[in-house]
């Protein structure tokens, strides 16, 4: 918990140092791809930490107004992970997230802005242990409402086409699905005292472990740092570094870290208003 607090404070402090001007209305469509690195420890399957490289893609829409920012972003990340001991024990990890963010600008200066807001998102993380017969899949999924902050900065002089941005979010409440055994069978059995695998497949049991959690038993920190270069008023390219850490405590806890470096092409639907 102490480490988490230090990280959170560091990130909040850092976010004030990054900046970009947001004094005009702007709609953007974004498509990007890049590389990712995942780190996982999932005690439903192993006490070992797995990590490895992968790929990521994203699609987004952003609406910037002088006093607010709205964003919808869908991202997928996948990778092949190893435990550093045995190559035969590989894991394929998948992450998908759809997030809607809304920020309100608090102080808009000539080249910097600082915004606070929130985010609602749905996500699913799956880990496929390649060699296992009855418990090959471990997963968690859910939806969360988070508070967040965003800082933007536009550079000047010969870097005037360059802008930097930093975003951070932390959930305050979430509905998290995480089967206690790592396989859904026990929840299926316990649902109404009947083994219903044949009738419902895994549809019912898949979600039956879900429950509402607050920050005490579900922690997640997501940050995005990006540099944007404008070719013109309608086309920009963006280099983003995303970092996420989350932890779901339970009798078989799971912790996961996701990093990704993404290059996105941004199409501005309307020209900036001066």
């Amino acid at each position: 918990m102490k480490i988490r607090s230090i990280i959170l404070l560091s990130v909040l402090g850092y976010s004030r140092a990054v900046a970009q001007q947001t004094d005009s209305a702007d709609k953007q469509l974004l498509i990007g791809a890049g590389f990712g690195y995942m780190t996982i420890k999932d005690l439903s399957s192993s006490p070992l930490r797995y990590s490895g490289m992968g790929a990521t893609v994203r699609l987004g829409y952003e609406y910037n107004q002088p006093k607010s920012v709205q964003r919808v972003l869908f991202s997928v990340q996948a990778g092949g992970l190893q435990n550093g001991i045995r190559k035969q024990s590989g894991v394929s990890a998948y992450k998908a997230q759809l997030a809607y963010s809304q920020y309100w600008v608090l102080n808009s200066r000539p080249r910097t802005s600082w915004a606070l807001g929130g985010r609602a998102d749905v996500w699913a993380n799956a880990r496929l242990f390649n060699t296992r017969e009855n418990n090959p899949v471990s997963y968690d999924a859910g939806t969360a409402i988070s508070i967040g902050t965003q800082a933007n900065h536009s550079f000047s002089g010969r870097f005037s086409r360059l802008a930097a941005s930093f975003q951070l979010s932390v959930p305050v409440v979430a509905y998290v699905i995480r089967p206690a055994y790592g396989v859904p069978y026990p929840e299926a059995f316990l649902q109404d005292g009947v083994f219903n695998h044949q009738d419902q497949g895994l549809t019912g049991p898949l979600v039956s472990s879900g429950r509402v959690r607050s920050t005490g038993d579900f922690f997640r920190l997501q940050t995005t740092t990006s540099l944007t270069y404008s070719f013109s008023n309608t086309k920009t390219i963006r280099l983003s570094y995303d970092w996420e850490y989350y932890s779901i405590p339970s009798n078989l806890p799971v912790s996961q870290g996701n990093q990704s470096l993404t290059v996105s092409f941004v199409k501005h639907i309307h020209e900036r208003s001066k």
Partner: peptide, 25 residues
């Protein structure tokens, strides 16, 4: 300087997950 510090902070953070996610190896 502030941008250099900011960049280093990000690199530091990205390394933190290995502190948060320990291995029982």
């Amino acid at each position: 300087l502030k941008y250099v510090v900011a960049g280093l902070a990000i690199l530091l953070l990205s390394g933190c997950e290995r502190l948060l996610i320990d291995s029982d190896k």
